[in-house]
């Protein structure tokens, strides 16, 4: 099981600013280890952000994204107290879901 995400969701005027920090190696499959063996690709391939159960953002991600990635989104129509749920799924089938409350 992967380490938890850090999610921050704050209202700035009528826009909700969501920041997500993920803990993931994001291996590209291009790198070799000290023995010269290729390190197998291991990366987050899809992520979605739900607001009160309704998906507001979903997308596919790939190996061009850094290790321990940071994502930032701006969402309209949220209010303080709303529940933000973030899901990701990686190419090895590992996944993670974390929640935060809009403040």
């Amino acid at each position: 099981m992967a380490d938890p995400m850090k999610i921050r969701a704050q209202m700035k005027g009528d826009i909700c600013d969501i920041k997500i920090l993920m803990s993931h190696p994001m291996e590209t499959g291009q790198r070799k280890d000290s023995d010269g063996k290729v390190v197998p690709a291991h990366f987050i391939q899809s992520l979605s952000v739900d607001l009160n159960g309704k998906t507001v953002i979903s997308g596919q991600t790939g190996t061009s994204i850094s290790r321990n990635p940071v994502f930032g989104f701006k969402v309209k129509g949220a209010k303080a107290g709303d529940k933000v749920t973030v899901n990701w799924l990686d190419n090895k089938g590992d996944k993670r879901t974390d929640e935060a409350t809009v403040s």
């Binding site: 380490d3 938890p4 850090k6 920041k19 920090l21 803990s23 940071v70």
Partner: peptide, 12 residues
Amino acid sequence: EDSNPAELFEAK
């Protein structure tokens, strides 16, 4: 600094 992955290590 606004979104520092160091926070992940703090949590760990």
